[in-house]
């Protein structure tokens, strides 16, 4: 590899590989320790404990449970939301509580159909699965918001789960569900929307609690191991922050000066600022200088002037 490859943020790649290794190692550890009596402890998450309470209430009232996986496309976030909805559906299926799952993305809708249908099958309650309970509403943000709000009002849902990627429509959902007296459990990976959910919902999953949910609910070794791996990563990051702060502070305040070559003499340069420090440079490498860009021949069919042949 040419020298130019080394200065493009390799430390970030190294860190991601290390973090991935933490997750995989702990998954392996959790699988190996399954049934040995040394299961990992997961702290209580109020929002997830409320799931059974919410479904129980919906069952008593004979009203549906609403689930919305946000308006994002099919990605890790919506998959996690659907995983949690799988658990919600499992409980709802046992109590014969009707469900409504509203999707804003066609790909998410297709996967949601499969997951919910499979959940009913796994519980041996296929006959209780209503194909129309999983619905595609619209892929336009406010058309979707209108559709979901309409569903909440018309069907008077007793419990509402808003988990996934939400944007401006979050408060519309939360307030509409509140207006019909539904118990609301919400969680968004969008930090700008979390305050709205906190203001309007009964229970909120904050930050990575959203990702911890499926481990908390299912206690599968793979998920629990992954959660422990995430904690290892957090501890490493905390260590890095501490080390980086101390190292950068030391480098800046200790009076260390850069040295520049002036002819044959080394002389003191200007005092370092934060962006001159070693640690800062490792995480935010400079853009390449023009002289560092190698000269290359033009591709076949391209003239020196840059035009096509």
């Amino acid at each position: 590899m040419g020298e130019q490859y080394y200065d493009t943020g390799w430390i970030s790649i190294l860190l991601v590989l290390l973090f991935s290794a933490f997750v995989l190692f702990n998954i392996r550890r959790a699988i190996a320790s399954k049934g040995s009596g040394k299961e990992v402890y997961i702290r209580r998450i109020a929002g997830l404990n409320a799931i059974e309470e919410a479904i129980g209430r919906a069952t008593e009232m004979g009203r549906p449970v609403l689930m919305v996986p946000g308006i994002g496309g099919l990605n890790a976030i919506s998959m996690q939301a659907l995983n949690i909805f799988g658990h919600v559906t499992k409980t709802a299926a046992r109590f014969a509580t009707p469900i409504r799952l509203c999707c804003a993305d066609a790909a998410v809708y297709t996967v949601a159909q499969e997951i919910i249908s499979e959940t009913y099958q796994r519980e041996g309650l296929s006959e209780r699965f209503d194909q129309d309970s999983v619905r595609f509403i619209s892929d336009r943000q406010f058309a979707f918001a209108t559709g979901v709000s309409g569903t909440i009002h018309r069907e008077k849902v007793a419990a509402a789960f808003f988990l996934g990627e939400f944007f401006a429509e979050s408060l519309i959902f939360a307030e509409t569900a509140n207006s019909v007296g539904a118990i609301q459990v919400a969680g968004s990976t969008q930090n700008t929307q979390t305050p709205f959910f906190i203001a309007a919902c009964d229970y909120v999953l904050i930050s990575d609690e959203f990702y911890a949910a499926s481990a908390y609910l299912s206690r599968q070794p793979v998920l629990v191991g992954s959660l422990v791996g995430q904690d290892w990563i957090k501890m490493t990051v905390m260590g890095m922050i501490l080390f980086g702060s101390l190292a950068s502070t030391f480098e800046v305040v200790s009076g260390l000066k850069t040295q520049e070559r002036d002819g044959t003499q080394l002389v003191d340069g200007e005092r370092k600022s934060i962006s001159d420090t070693w640690f800062y440079h490792q995480l935010k490498p400079d853009a390449p200088k023009p002289e560092e860009i190698p000269q290359r021949e033009p591709a076949d069919g391209v003239t020196e002037e840059g035009g096509g042949a």
């Binding site: 998954i27 998959m79 799988g86 658990h87 930090n191 990575d208 959203f210 990702y211 959660l227 957090k234």
Partner: peptide
């Protein structure tokens, strides 16, 4: 909070990529 979300996303991404978990509980 964002760190937590990114780390959770990374772990979820690895599990999905390597098909380590079954969806829907």
């Amino acid at each position: 909070l964002e760190w937590g979300i990114f780390i959770g996303g990374l772990a979820m991404g690895i599990r999905l990529w390597l098909s380590l978990e079954r969806s829907g509980g």
